[in-house]
């Protein structure tokens, strides 16, 4: 009852603005506007080629759009990679557990200052706990000074069943959001947590949406 009621009050930003369409990988797509993406798009600009890292599942829409603007694009699906058993080691209790050291031998291997921009989407809300802070530290190192990172963070009202999404950039400030059923929300950051997470960065700018998201643009 309560979740239905909350859904009802979510507001216009969460409402589908176009007819949903089924993709071949994942569920229906709905369109949403994104002030964070607008700022991100301004930051990377079309004036000169940039190096952009997309940390979401492979999105042809994003890759085609960004390369079409002349940018060099990296894609790493860290969440999917975290399921790889190669990165598991036996813990002190004999059980297999994810090893950040093993994981980052193959992931986010960039030279210092190699990236101009990172699309982190809502990855920190779903990534296994041991990987979150090391991931942010590595991104901090890989980003150039002045480089930007776009992240989405659920609010507590989203609830534990908030679905994982793929994000497809369809415009300078519009996204197609596609539900993926494979992953469950691992945690919810409050604003203080987010500021602490990006403590080493120059600035953190929040954008509140009406659909249980805080969009965050972080500047290195």
């Amino acid at each position: 009852m309560a979740p239905d009621l909350l859904k009802f009050f979510r507001g216009s930003a969460a409402q589908p603005q176009t007819a949903p369409s089924a993709g071949s990988k994942g569920g229906v797509r709905t369109q949403r506007s994104s002030s964070g993406l607008k700022e991100f798009s301004k930051s990377i600009g079309p004036e000169s080629p940039k190096v952009v890292l997309d940390l979401g599942p492979t999105s042809p829409t994003n890759l085609m759009r960004l390369t079409g603007m002349g940018h060099k694009v990296y894609n790493e699906d860290l969440l999917m990679a975290s399921l790889d058993t190669r990165y598991q080691v036996k813990g002190s209790d004999g059980r297999l557990e994810l090893s950040p050291a093993e994981f980052f031998k193959d992931s986010l291997v960039f030279e210092e200052g190699a990236l101009d921009a990172v699309l982190a989407w809502d990855l920190p809300d779903y990534l296994p706990e041991p990987l979150v802070k090391p991931m942010v530290d590595r991104l901090h190192r890989a980003l150039k000074p002045g480089g930007v990172l776009l992240g989405f963070f659920h609010t507590r009202e989203a609830g534990p069943e908030a679905p994982y999404h793929r994000y497809h950039i369809t415009g300078g400030e519009t996204l197609d959001v596609q539900v993926m059923e494979r992953f469950k929300l691992a945690r919810v950051f409050n604003n203080r947590h987010i500021e602490n997470l990006f403590h080493d960065f120059k600035s953190v700018k929040f954008f509140l949406a009406r659909d249980y998201f805080r969009e965050v643009l972080v500047v290195r």
Partner: peptide, 30 residues
């Protein structure tokens, strides 16, 4: 094409901004 992509997106900025608002900008020492 690249310029068109940006100009096209900016045309709808009004409606997009209406759904969201910038809350706060926190700055740290680099």
């Amino acid at each position: 094409a690249a310029a068109a992509g940006y100009s096209g997106s900016s045309s709808s900025s009004g409606s997009a901004m209406s759904a969201q608002r910038s809350l706060v900008e926190t700055k740290f020492e680099p």
